[in-house]
Design a protein around this nucleic acid. Structure first.
Ligand SMILES: [Mn+2]
Ligand SMILES: [Mn+2]
Ligand SMILES: [Zn+2]
Ligand SMILES: [Zn+2]
Lengths: 137, 137
DNA sequence: AAAGTAATGCAACAATGTTTCATATGCAAC
DNA sequence: GTTGCATATGAAACATTGTTGCATTACTTT
């Protein structure tokens, strides 16, 4: 609870209940969340628009990052070390086609790739779809 | 022209002007296209819904594949060798942040990755964002 | 406690995608 | 070539998702 406020303060954000709740939802559920997921989790507490704006703010401040998904955009907590200036997201995302969850594999880094002459790579996003350990009995 | 019909026939699809035009648009523009891109390219010729349905059909038949993008879904031609049963899409997609185009790098394969125990990978989608050769002077 | 600034809720709108159903079209069989 | 059947299309209605403007409310600093 106090930790949430601290996180917001570190990123120069006013502490509001919506931001606390959104942040806390990201922390408790560990998987990547869509706007709709958050709406569902938070019930009628906040206006749709406010959630959109909270996501946008968190993105800009480097609290969360985008997770590409074959059926839309999701968001997940940045592990640490992400700021407004510099983002470090070279890890793999895994989407389970059985349970539908998408997760960050923080420790699995995207391998180096060799691009043809002239390409200047800046950001990487690797989504692997398949079956997750929970669903792979 | 005759080639288009042949491609449709190979996939057991009736030749309609919409399908011909959509396919021909994918061939002439070489980059990945969103539904909106197609609507723009084809003008008022066809109903929005018909274009959606054409994309869905082409997806199912293995004529095009999905391309994940940080601002929505796009589609691109399958190079060859994709059928309704089996798809082969282990190549890299590159999105240029300057010109906005997303392209298939057919010859750049996604490198092997080592996942933790229990993960069963099936499909891979790697999007690299940066500057493309055209825009990198 | 007061003032200034930033966040919120609400309404209206825009964009994107889906479903239903009557009509039109392609295609295979005759 | 004509016929009949299955399929594709267009139109309307709807659902979902995301954005913008503006008045009100709530943080934070002093
Ligand atoms: Mn992640
Ligand atoms: Mn591709
Ligand atoms: Zn699972
Ligand atoms: Zn470019």
């Amino acid at each position: 609870m106090e930790q949430l406020r601290k996180t917001l303060k570190v990123h120069n954000l006013r502490t509001t209940t919506c931001r606390e709740d959104v942040l806390s939802t990201f922390i408790s559920k560990k998987n990547a969340l869509s706007h709709g997921d958050l709406e569902g989790a938070l019930g009628e507490s906040y206006d749709r628009v406010t959630i959109y704006r909270t996501l946008k703010t968190f993105l800009e401040k480097g609290i969360i990052h985008k997770v590409l998904d074959d059926e839309g955009l999701r968001y997940a907590l940045c592990s640490h070390s992400c700021s407004e200036e510099k983002h470090q997201h070279d890890h793999i995302h895994f989407k389970c086609n059985t349970c539908g969850e998408t997760n960050c594999l923080e420790n699995q880094h995207i391998p180096e790739v060799q691009l043809p002459q002239g390409y200047l790579p800046e950001h990487f996003n690797l989504l692997i779809q398949g079956t997750c350990p929970k669903c792979n009995n």
